[in-house]
Amino acid sequence: MITALDDAVRSAADRATGQILALSHDLHAHPEIAWEEVRSCARVAGDLADSGFAVEENFTGLSTAFLARLGTGPLHLAVCAEYDALPGMGHACGHNVIAAISTGAAVALAPYVDDLGITLSVFGTPAEEGGGGKIEILERGGFAGVHAAAMVHPGPVDVARAEPYAVSHSHIQYDGKAAHAAAYPDRGVNAADAFTIAQVAIGLLRQQLPSGVRVHGVMTNGGEAPNAIPQRTEGRWYVRAGTLAELAGLEERVNRCFEAGAHATGCELTITAESKPYAEFRTDEGLLAGYVRRAEELGRRFSSGADSLMNRASTDMGNVSQRIPAIHPYIGIDSLPAVNHQVEFAAAAISPAADRAATDGALALALTLLDAAVDTGTRQRLMATAEGDAR
């Protein structure tokens, strides 16, 4: 029975190859940024609806989220699809490949959900690139009843284990007072100076921060005209640490640097969280071992070292993993020297190697979930841990 289903899922995945690649390339050609993924969301949901899934749009009240579900079995397995792009860089993180992998895995398993005794869900999750769509879905009860969740993320090389930083995303705004920069400089309150002071303070603070900490950001509004004292400046800043607990203390220290800019210049400071903090990842070891075995059967080889550091990137899937058994392996698209968040990586995300990653990832993920369903020990273990229970 297991062998027959294994072969059947492989055949279904093979039949879905054209669908998988068409989806990946279509999303890549029409990139949409966080919370604006209207076309992308509809495109992925439409593929799943055409494959027999019942689709709920505007899932948990989010206009670019969806839930696609098939089957009524007692073991509830889920895959997550991401489809947001980066501002100005398109799919430079390869989320088109993620959506294609998750959709392909679901389509390959769809004919066999009753044989496997599972409920199969695909979560369309917006705004991973700063916005935390999965966190919103999680906290609104969208993952209730799910026993395990999985997804596969592209990178330069294959890496099995996700070890992301916890991260906070903040919008920084200084408000001062405009004045003519030559005639009346003494009547202005310079918001650009406030940002300069804060950035210098952060640069000095880095000397005293643990080696695993990251603090980085950009100014998105630095003023309007060179002959006017800047009245308002704005920026977006990320603070990353090993855990949410470490992040909380670190964020306070960084915020004091921003406060220093306000105190020194007389500007008013406003710090606004752009999303809830992303958590560190908790890997389900059994599911990950299964994925590694299945991926290696397809000829994938896992890497370590400097080229494999994409596994340290923060993800809102970390928050899901704190509640539900989860995995988030990385699949290589042979992009080196290009790496994630470079325009060259966006170009590589529809290369022949990326297409192979999309089809390999879909099959490896489908077979991993198949194994979880048919292995009695894994099935019982997952069903004993409902979403929200202590783990």
Results as ranks from 00 to 15, higher is better:
A357Y: 05
A85I: 02
N319C: 09
A149G: 08
H25N: 14
S168W: 00
E268G: 04
K134N: 13
S303W: 11
A192E: 01
H341I: 10
R256V: 12
A347N: 09
R253A: 04
I2T: 15
L48Q: 10
F345N: 01
V292A: 12
D371W: 10
L247H: 02
L269K: 05
A386S: 12
L70Q: 07
A273G: 08
L67M: 08
A45C: 15
H28W: 15
C267N: 02
N255D: 07
A65D: 04
P164G: 12
H28V: 08
A106C: 15
A194M: 01
L23I: 12
I98V: 15
A85K: 08
D355T: 06
V146M: 05
H28G: 09
C93E: 11
L288R: 05
S170R: 13
P230S: 07
E387D: 09
L369G: 08
S321A: 15
M1W: 13
A8E: 04
T17Y: 04
D175N: 09
I137F: 07
G332M: 13
V218E: 01
R301C: 07
D115F: 01
G71M: 03
A289V: 06
R187M: 14
E224C: 03
R253N: 04
N319Q: 04
A194N: 04
N96E: 08
E251V: 04
E224K: 14
T270C: 05
S308P: 06
A162F: 06
L70D: 00
A99E: 01
A149L: 10
L70T: 00
A13H: 14
F258V: 00
G145V: 04
H25I: 14
V343T: 14
D115Y: 05
A182H: 07
L298E: 08
Q207K: 05
S168H: 00
A29H: 05
R293E: 15
I33A: 13
G141W: 05
S351A: 11
P352E: 06
W237T: 01
Y184A: 14
R10A: 11
R214K: 13
D284S: 13
P337H: 14
Q208R: 11
G46H: 09
V167P: 01
G188T: 12
G176R: 06
L75F: 08
G88L: 13
I172L: 08
F143Y: 15
S314P: 07
S121Q: 11
M317E: 06
L204M: 13
T378I: 14
H180C: 11
